[in-house]
Amino acid sequence: MSGTEADRAFMRTALALAARGLGNTWPNPAVGCVLVSAEGRIVGRGWTQPGGRPHAERRALDQAGALARGATAYVTLEPCAHYGKTPPCAEGLISAGVARVVSALTDPDPRVAGRGHAMLRDAGIAVTEGVLADAARALNAGFLKRVEQGLPFVTLKLATTIDGRIATASGESRWITGPEARRAVHAMRMGHDAVMVGSGTALADDPDLTVRDMGAPQQPVRIVIDSLLRHSPDSRLGRSAAAAPVWMLHGQDAPFAAQDGWRATGARLLPVAMAGGHLDLRAALRALAEAGLTRIFCEGGADLAAALLRAGLVDELVHFGAGALIGAEGRAALGPMGLQALAEAPRLQRISQDSVGADVVTRWHCS
């Protein structure tokens, strides 16, 4: 494990700050920075602000002022080395007279990719890399996947009864889980760049997919996978598109009238290739990554959930389990998976399990 115990303790603080930016900083990573004086006192703290700027280092330096000279900077990702809308953070640390920089990860962005660390070392600043790298990698899994694979990190949420049902035979589903679980879902929405559903869920529930009653700094992008744009622009999503972003992913054969109707609401339309009569989900996610999204929270129905799992496009599954039973006539949580043998079933790795009100939430890593 890299770094001293003090280094790891201060990096944990920086990681906690970075987490405050999740869902708000795309296409930039969520970064945290702590400036610590030679006497071991924190003199500056910062995290990436909504929209991606100011960067964490700039916020911490502004807070520390002259106290940054001779301090150690703990940063969860390598300081940037390129000129964009603002000067490089590596340059800011150098100008402030920081004596040492401790980082968790090298930034895989080709514009950085080690150049930030090199710039600091060339200026005579001591650099320690790799402190709590695994924790930093998990925190910024979305940004890293977008840069390295051209895809966003996808979290699939399922809320089911003990017997795996999401609704009665008539479609009644409010509410499978309790108020505490529903509030936890809103917190998860807030930590993602976007919330995504399929056309079936949009048509059945007419959702608004916003974060409510949590003081969200900005609303997530609301995405509907709707090949023929069947969902009406006069829906809750359409009527609120000017206030919070709505993106509609559709096929080339979507009616022009429907496309015009959604454009009139202020929604963004992203055409995607078709495959087997449905939108190509991998192509759809690539389009979302190209548009800057790094973390997608999928609350789609059974068919979209199964399609994402079949295609190996789910990174994490969050399951809310309610102590209720509906029976075989109820609607299943997953559509057809196309399995011929048990050995073909996806095997997930449990990350955590906790109680939330009367329900149980389990997080699974999808390998």
Rank of each mutant, 00 (worst) to 15 (best):
T168C: 14
G215W: 01
E39R: 15
V43F: 00
C33S: 06
M274I: 08
P220Q: 08
P87W: 03
C33H: 01
R137I: 03
W262E: 08
A324K: 08
T72R: 09
G277C: 11
R286F: 04
G266Q: 02
S355Q: 11
L279N: 02
P336K: 12
D253H: 15
L269H: 03
R263Y: 01
A96N: 08
T72Y: 06
A90I: 05
L313V: 03
T76A: 04
G312C: 04
S227Q: 06
I296G: 10
A68S: 04
A14E: 00
V361Y: 07
L93T: 08
H192W: 07
Q259I: 10
G238E: 00
Q63E: 14
R236F: 04
D109K: 07
L309Y: 07
L35S: 10
V98M: 11
L304C: 09
N140C: 13
A99D: 08
D206T: 11
S232D: 02
G327I: 07
T161S: 14
C33Q: 00
A167R: 04
G200V: 12
G200R: 13
A9V: 09
R100H: 13
I223K: 02
E148H: 03
A68N: 03
R347N: 03
A16G: 14
R58G: 07
A30I: 02
I166T: 13
D107L: 04
W26L: 13
V361W: 11
E344C: 09
P79W: 05
V34T: 10
P50K: 05
A126G: 13
D359L: 14
T86R: 07
G251Y: 03
G46H: 01
A126P: 09
T128S: 13
T48N: 06
F320M: 08
L308W: 00
R268I: 14
I42R: 12
L348M: 13
R286T: 12
R8H: 00
A73R: 05
